[in-house]
């Protein structure tokens, strides 16, 4: 078993709706879908993002697109208009999630 960054097997984009951030994450190859499905759970993301995301995290699975949509409430420090963050729109949430370290078995990559 080895530890890799989600970035090694996935790509995606983040957007904002008020204080809600959504990040879509797609497998770079079809066979990576299962790894993301197993490794990137709302529970893990809560632990990973800690204080950055104060609300509920929901994962929507989209096998026909080879990806997932993560919807995170109260995730932008108040949202585009009120946030004191440099990145008030959460444009870099999409790359932040790619820092998540995940476990893969030998032969999975």
């Amino acid at each position: 078993m080895s530890e890799i960054y989600l970035n090694d097997i996935a790509h995606g984009r983040s957007g904002d709706k008020g204080d809600t951030s959504n990040i879509c994450v797609f497998a770079r190859k079809p066979e990576y879908y299962k790894i993301i499905e197993r490794e990137v759970t709302p529970e893990k993301l809560h632990e990973f993002f800690g204080d950055m995301v104060k609300g509920e995290i929901t994962r929507y699975d989209l096998p026909s697109l080879g990806g997932f949509n993560f919807v995170m409430k109260h995730a932008l420090g108040g949202g585009a208009t009120m946030s004191l963050r440099l990145d008030s729109l959460g444009k870099s949430m999409g790359s932040a999630i790619m820092r998540l370290k995940i476990h893969v078995d030998e032969g999975e990559l």
């Binding site: 959504n22 879509c24 929507y60 989209l62 026909s64 080879g66 949509n69």
Partner: peptide
Amino acid sequence: KEQFLYEVLDPANYVTPDVNVDISRATI
């Protein structure tokens, strides 16, 4: 794909004034 889900919340209920869109089974 990256744009398809941009600022979408629940992909089976993407609510707009014109229609409630379901892209949960969509293909590209």
